[in-house]
Design a protein around this nucleic acid. Structure first.
Lengths: 229, 229
DNA sequence: ACAAAAGTGTTACATCTACACCCATGG
DNA sequence: CCATGGGTGTAGATGTAACACTTTTGT
């Protein structure tokens, strides 16, 4: 005698997937894990996992972030991206995934000691052919990041606590894949109210005149925005 | 004997909720339903329902839209808003809801003959004390709509196929709760590339010089944007 | 004729782009 | 001194805000 109580009507497994973006050596990179089990065994995928019972969605995403990178979610920026639930996106059954987007500084403490041993920062451009519908999720995350640089000060989320204007410009140039005029960029970000604040310190990197160091300002919106060329 | 009972580990009921916005008599309104059953019996709530097995999330939202309003989802504008899954948001158990936002023209064909007999267009300002976390979802939807008017041509989604510049200005003034200079507004929207196109027709409403009629243009982004004052 | 709404012109000001130019450092 | 990157000044183009003014209708 077999009794299967069908509790699954209109129900789905709920997971979170993470689009973790950072900039290393002036290159946009994304944290990927190599899948150790079927389906898509051996393929790269976005890190993620199940939402636990009695766990909030954002909390689940923050927990995964800590587990995969050792990073505290308060570092950088963290937001809900979108939700993907097309039937058949996971061959094992109905899985609805809530994707989160994080923009992180280049972390001195890397992924070592993390949950998923296969986690690695990979160049964004080479991150294709991912498991499930993760190509699409990653593309949506990158596009969200590009758009947010225009009208929010979130480019600073990619920077360490103290950074130069050139560091910040490198973020824009890398994420947008453009070159920006260093002189006009300098003026724009230093005059945009609340974007960045001078710390009083300065650094010399390689050659050239030392650059002032800045920290994030209190603004949450850029007035005026920095529009993509 | 095999009894499988607990299929619900890491699973949740998945629903869609709809934030349907329209403008009637220069007032922002939202479609609400009065709940006939517990929990929150008798309270206003956003329309919504379960995602069926083998049904895509967007398709479920589109189906609910048709059922509640008789409107084809291709009318107006339709997009995913955000997902809400805090444990306890529904006292009956774990329910994750994917909210969708629609901006619709003032519909000549109303809600009559709809699924939820209690569905009604209600003034946005009086839509408080809703069931579940729908106050929050509605607020997020309205804020998304306000932001999107700035840098996309979606204000036209609130308008019928042919509309005047004054109609369009009424959308902005209503959603943003501001007054805009009619003369500068006229110039901005008629010069913004691809925003609106003249149809060649014109109408006289009440008194005053007849106004040209326009239809939506092909642009998906506004260059330059119309920023909130 | 008058009120009301549509639409154009104008002026002052802000912002953007492009680029000349100066500043401060390492070699 | 020179190369290199940091940072300021300025002129022309474009966009905005405020408002005077003209056009076209209903009453």
């Amino acid at each position: 005698m077999v009794i299967i109580v069908n509790m699954t009507l209109n129900m789905a497994a709920v997971t979170v997937d993470l689009v973790l973006l950072t900039i290393r050596q002036s290159e946009l990179q994304v944290l990927l894990v190599r899948r150790g089990i079927e389906p898509f065994r051996g393929r790269w995928a976005l890190p993620g996992g199940f939402v636990l019972d009695d766990e909030d969605l954002g909390a689940a995403a923050a927990r995964e972030l800590r587990e995969e990178t050792g990073v505290d979610p308060s570092t950088g920026h963290f937001e809900q991206l979108a939700t993907y639930g097309t039937p058949g996106r996971d061959p094992r059954g109905r899985v609805v995934t809530v994707a989160y987007l994080a923009m992180l500084p280049d972390l001195p403490a890397p992924v070592a000691g993390s949950d998923a041993a296969g986690a690695e920062w990979r160049p964004f451009d080479e991150a294709t052919g991912l498991a499930f519908d993760h190509d699409r999720i990653l593309a949506d995350g990158a596009e969200r990041a590009r758009a947010k640089l225009e009208y929010t000060p979130l480019a600073t989320a990619f920077c360490p606590p103290e950074f130069t204007v050139a560091d910040l410009r490198d973020v824009y140039e890398t994420v947008w894949r453009t070159r920006l005029d260093p002189r006009n960029f300098h003026r724009k970000v230093t005059t945009a109210e609340g974007f960045i604040e001078p710390t009083g310190h300065s650094v010399t990197r390689d050659r050239g005149r030392p650059a002032q160091l800045f920290r994030r300002g209190p603004a949450t919106l850029l007035h005026p925005p920095l529009l993509r060329p």
